[in-house]
Every structure is written in C-alpha cells, then in structure tokens.
Design a protein around this nucleic acid. Structure first.
Lengths: 410, 410
DNA sequence: TGGCTTTGTATCCACCGCGAACAAAGCGGG
DNA sequence: CCCGCTTTGTTCGCGGTGGATACAAAGCCA
C-alpha cells in the first residue's frame, strides 16, 4: 500500500507542542534557546521551528537578531506570527462584556466592548458576545481557531455550568459552555478544524486572569502561582500549578472568599463570620472609609478612585486601606500556609491596596505565615491589560498548544 | 563502529515506567489490562512486561489467571515479584522509630521497631535507624534500590531540612536528608546503581501517608486526594494531585493546622485563635472530655483508647467527640473550598472521629462547603498499616518507577 | 584573511511502538 | 470429540522520531 506521504518537514511532531508553547510564552526567542529549553538537538529544534513556520503559527526572521556583544553566529529570531490565526475571546462582567480576537503570544488583535441589560439571560448575552466577536472576524478576515469565555462565576467541570453567577442575574447552574458553543455554531465561528464550528471553552474570570498572568504577565516563570482578585463584590482566587490551572476535581477550587480574616467581623451568607469575601471587597473598603457605597454597579471603580485620590490626604481612607491590607494579609497568609506558592498576584482592589502600601502587606503575610523563608513570598500586581480576555484566549489556544498539527487538519 | 547490541527484549523502554507503575499500584493485573491502560498495542505491552520481568521487578504467572466466566484465552497474571529488590524505609516519631524493607506494591517484607532517647539528635537517631534497616538487609539478603524516611516535620524542598520537628527535640532546620544519606553511605546501603551508595529521600510523614494511601490504600483512583491526620499534637495535611505529591514551591504546603475552626477558641502560638491544630488534636479531645491529659508521650494512644471504649457509654466523651467532629468538619470544609479534592482521607485521631460518627462529619462538611455537589466529598479512613513507612518507600521507589532501566545499570 | 565561536542543516541510524498475521488457550455447540 | 468462536500473546516488518555527527554559515577578532 502507499503510506501517507510525509515530507521531511514533518519531523519532530512530538516536540511541536512544547516548542510552540515556548514561543507562545516568549521563552524561546531564538532556535538556540529553543534547543536548550526543549533539551533536544539543534537538528530537531530546527525541524520543529520549520514545521511551526510551515503551519503559519510562527515566523523565523532571517535577519540576524540581537547579536549584541555575544560572539558566534547570530541567531535568527523566532516570534509568533502577527498575521497568523487568532481565537475569539470574550469576558462577561456585571456592566457588560468585551469581545476580542487574540493571537498567539496573548496579542490582542482587535477588541470591542459591548453592553447588555442587567436582566439579560445567558443566551441573550452570549448571542451578543459572539455576534461582536464574529463581527471582528469579518472585519479582519482572520482565520479563527477556537473560542474562550471568561465569566464572573465558578464554572463546574466537566459540565461547564456557571454555579454562582451572583452579579449577572443568570440562573445558578446555567450551562454556559453549551450555550456559548451553540452561539458560536449559529454565528459560524470556526474551530481548529476549519470547516467544523468551534467548541467553546468557558471558565471563571479570576482563573483566567491567573492563567494569562502566568503565561504573559507578572507570573512568568512562577511554578506555583496564586492569584487573588476582587470584582465589585466578593473575592476570587486561582492557582496555576506547573503551568496548568488547578481547578480542583469539579472546577470549584480556590473559593477563597470564606477564609476567616476577622473573628469579630460581620456575618457572611456562608454561615461564618469575618470572611475575606465581605471584609476586603470594594464595598467593605468604602464603608470602612465612611463613604456612602452607592449602587452596586461601579463599586470597584469608585473604590479604586477613592484609594487613588485620597489615600495620601484623608486619614480615614488611609486607615480603611490599612485595615483592609491587614485583613487581606491574614487571608493570604492562610493561603500561603496551605498552598505554598512561589508568587502571589493581586488584581482589582487588592492590586490597588498592594500598590498603596506593599511593605505593610508583605509584613502581615510574613508575620502570619509559618516557617516562611527568606523575605516571604513575592506579591505582585497584575501586569496585563484585559488579562481576563487573554486568559479566555489561552483556553481556546490550549488544544493548538497541545497538538499544533490540528491547525493543519482543517 | 559496532553499536551497543540491544536484544529485541529491550523494546518498549518509553512505556516501561508507566507500565511498572500500573503493576506497582495494582491497576494492571494482566497484560490485557496493561494494554488497555497504557493505550498501546498488545505487542508493545507484551514486550514491556517481558522487559520488566527480565529486570526482576515483576513476575508473569504462566498458569491461567482468574478466567472466571469470561470467554477467550485466559490471561496470565502480572504481579510484583515477591522475591524482587526492596527499598529501605523508615519512620521516625516521638516515641522511637520503625525501619522496614518494602518491595514493589507497597509490600512490607521485613520490619523492626526501635527506640531512641528523647534527647537524641538527628545523627544519633538516623544512625540507629539505618543500622536497623541495614540489619534487615543482611538478614534477608535482598538487593536494595534506595531509601526513604518519614519524619514528623515539614521538610523544605529542595534542601531536605526539617523545619519544625517539634516533637523530636531536633534543631529546626536540621538537614535530615543529608544526614540520612551520610548514614546510608556509612552503613553501606546501596542505591539503584548497585555499587554506589543510595541517596536518601526524606519527607513529612503525613505527606507520605497520603502518597501511600493514594497508591495502595483508600485513595486509589482519586485524582485530587486530601489527607489530614493527627499525631500526638497538632494536625498535618497533604495533597496528592494527579498522582504526585503537592509539596508546594518550598515543601511547606498543606500546613493546615492554623485554619480557624472556632473564632472563640483558645489562642495558638501562631498568633491566631481557635486553630485546627489546637482544637482537634488528641490533647484537645482529652481536655474536652474532662480527662487528665497526662504526659506528652502517648497522648494519641490514650485519646484513641478513650474514644473507642467510652464513646458509647460516657456522654462527656460523646459530646467531646461531637465537638471535635464539628470543628474538624469546619476545617475540612475550608480546605474543600480551597482545594476541591475528590476524596478526603483521615488518619490518627481524625480517623477515629470519622469512624465514631461519619454522618455527622459528612454533614458538617457539606453544610459549610460552598456549591458542593451531590452528597459532598467522600471522606474515608486510612486503610493501610504503617502507611507512613509505605509512603517513605514510595519516595525511594520513585526513581525506579520513573525509569525502570536504572535497576539494570547497577 | 584566517582562526574562533556559535548557530543552522544534511545525512545516517537506533529505537520505539504500530499493524498485521499467526499461534495459543479456553469455551461451547453440534 | 472436533470444530468454530473469542480473547490473549507473539513474531516480524515498517515508519516515524529524534540523536549523533559532520559540515556549512555567519558573525567577531586579531
């Protein structure tokens, strides 16, 4: 029989995925580095790079790169193909949504915000969202390899249902992934196989922030990355272990909002008292500062604004910030004792608190974490714009990173 | 040049490790199952099994196995070679130590307890320990492939230092792995390479209980396994994710003792109040039951005895048990919210509390864990004798499981 | 211009695991 | 009792993957 003809270029399939991931995360700027990172020979790394280029995923710049100072033959630059395929990414939040096309490397190619009525159900919202994304695809004419969605709710695995979309007026248990996939099919958004419609991926927004920061932001190089962030209300957490999101056995891990941070604090719907959720969110901050919290929508923005403008001038604001920092530090110390991350990233109001007085926060964590080592865990601020969106894109890219040959089979 | 001759039997090296792990954990009783579990062809599975047999690690029983009812040619039984090589395993605790030889499959081939004075330093203790193990090796004449040690302390990675050996009068930060390795060399205990001395592995005992239970006990088949156990004082935790121990970035993960389980509870040396550590350990139980706790040594044994004999008859004991169950449930619920395990295993006093009233414990966990699903997380009792020892052996077996060919290169 | 160093490429080959055909071992039915 | 039937185990050949090696390319530097 005539076997399926394979060109020499197709060598190195097994290393394709790891290689693409290295270029994707910016850890392989040249073939030489790629060789070292993959632990293969130059021959293999060269074949792999050629194959990825043939697939239209990366570009090999033939002009000598950097070359600054070092001797020897200058290496060619490997980079993600800026004209390559994209994925559709979207983030839904209490005030609306944002859709985007995201290329490899977490590059946002095009993005557009959108608004929906507060009462809209998942199908309405996701129809709008996918419609906006499909519009971007038409405008740009890019090839689409998948789609990912960030939602402000825990998402159960493997069902893909939103368990607690508290700020969206969605029914708990709404099958968002299924709805998202259906909307994609209706809008004709394609997946990696080209003609077949894309299957949608959906996950919690904080999880996706963590994933995005780990691959392209402040979490690069971390092995065990903890991410904690506020939205308008409540606190979310996420953990990336060895480069993969730890979602737990049913997708519900890192519900960190109900750690006790103030034994004398206010009671919480969870049945406890003084939970991180209610003691360190924007509402708690505004109240602690003696301000009128106002309507639910925009709590985060008002809290950030207050902290930014009056922290230096108003003692009540400063005291409120310090109070929240102390509580947050206590909660983070508890997480450090359980998870032992090598880096912590904060988003939302927590990020602003960190930037207001990083030393105070670090000290609280160090004091209350047991047997912590040399200086304690580094705590950093989120470094990406739209990290939730980028994280949603990572979900969609994952099948391609796992097996880049999928893009050829389409 | 004449290349290194390799027999046909040596085919299938890449799958050797996974195959050995399957037999080791009892998940591959026959070659047919091995074929399915590895996802390879019968030819490959057969070659792999033959290779493992040639290495002296497993036996292939030529008599037809089971065959009960099913049609087709009966399969041969694959099993760990009971006469195969062993590793030296040891567990140190407050009252002394226990050394053992452990074969594949977690089979304890020989074991011996030992006593040391309370004031003994690490070098003295480990000299005794290794001496006892070496004695067993001499008596049995087994080939030794490595050594592992369980200690009642967090062990920092990668240094291998015992950070908080609170019950041992060892200096915090004692380099136990280094000392252990030196003792092994002095006693002439061999590693996988045959002539070279073994490098010792050391880890926290509760971590090793979790590892052992995951591979050979109540945790088999779990993906995310949480283990919580008491010794005489304090509470330890451990987490196995995807079959590997999660020790955190510096080996300090799962220090679960300082979760708040009683906001009005007694103060703890950690600075908090009502910590799991001081509210659910044997001392807390004896005090809650109104008994005189007595000396430090033997607290666990007395607590277990009291619970076993008087739970049904003495209301004070029952109330104390229920109090501790409620506190424990609160702590476990907090961990469930953060880690989302698919199984929980309890050891020490916690195991006895579970057996006293499993339903009460399950209910508390279910009530306080958020969005828990259908019936909550299964909570089971440790199923192995000497699980700490078996876990220590797993540490030593790991290099062999990762690459079985190492045993040939010796 | 000719070393020197590092990067990229061409060629050969060992090895792993797949596929297919065959052999083996029990069951069961005429 | 013998002949299918089913499942398991083995033999043999093949193709793809990546290693090793030698060589070519491209910059520094004397």
């Amino acid at each position: 029989m005539t076997p399926t003809r394979t060109t020499k270029l197709e060598r190195g399939r097994g290393a394709l995925g790891p290689a693409l991931e290295l270029v994707h995360t910016g850890r392989a700027p040249t073939r030489a580095v790629l060789t070292a990172e993959l632990g293969v020979t130059r021959a293999t790394a060269g074949a792999v790079a050629a194959e990825l280029e043939a697939l239209g995923l990366i570009t090999v710049d033939s002009r000598p790169a950097v070359a600054a100072g070092s001797q020897g033959r200058p290496s060619h630059r490997l980079s993600v193909d800026p004209e390559g395929p994209v994925v559709l990414a979207a983030q839904v939040h209490a005030d609306g949504f944002r859709a985007a096309l995201v290329g490899l490397g977490g590059r946002i190619v095009a993005t557009v915000p959108g608004a929906v009525t507060v009462e809209a159900d998942p199908a309405q919202v996701l129809t709008e969202v996918v419609g906006a994304g499909a519009g971007l695809l038409r405008e740009t004419g890019r090839r689409c390899l998948g789609a990912g969605l960030a939602v402000p709710s825990a998402v159960a695995e493997p069902e893909g249902t939103a368990l607690n979309p508290l700020h969206l007026a969605w029914p708990p248990g709404a099958p968002v992934r299924e709805i998202f996939t259906r909307c994609l099919a209706e809008a004709g958004v394609t997946g990696p196989s080209g003609d077949a419609p894309a299957t949608g991926f959906a996950a919690n927004d904080v999880n996706l922030v963590a994933l995005a920061e780990h691959r392209h932001g402040a979490g690069r190089g971390a092995r065990d990355l903890l991410c904690v962030a506020t939205g308008h209300r409540g606190v979310g957490g996420a953990l990336v272990l060895d480069g993969r999101l730890h979602t737990g056995s049913s997708g519900l891990a890192l519900e960190v909002g109900h750690l006790t941070v103030d034994p004398d604090g206010r009671s919480c719907h969870c049945g406890g008292r003084g939970c991180l959720d209610v003691e360190t969110d924007p509402l708690a901050f505004l109240e602690a500062a003696g301000r009128e919290p106002g309507p639910e929508t925009g709590l985060l923005k008002r809290a950030l604004e207050l902290l930014r403008t009056e922290y230096a001038t108003d003692p009540a604001v400063r005291d409120a910030a310090h109070l929240l920092i102390d509580r947050l530090g206590l909660g983070l110390a508890g997480l450090v004792n359980i998870l032992d991350p090598d880096r912590i990233i904060l988003g939302g109001l927590h990020r602003a608190l960190l930037e207001a007085d990083a030393e105070r926060l670090q000290n609280v964590i160090a004091e209350r974490s047991l047997w912590g080592r040399d200086g304690g865990v580094p705590v950093l601020a989120c470094a990406l714009d739209y990290s939730g969106l980028v994280g949603a894109a990572e979900l969609a890219w994952q099948p391609v990173l796992d097996d880049p040959m999928t893009v050829a089979r389409g």
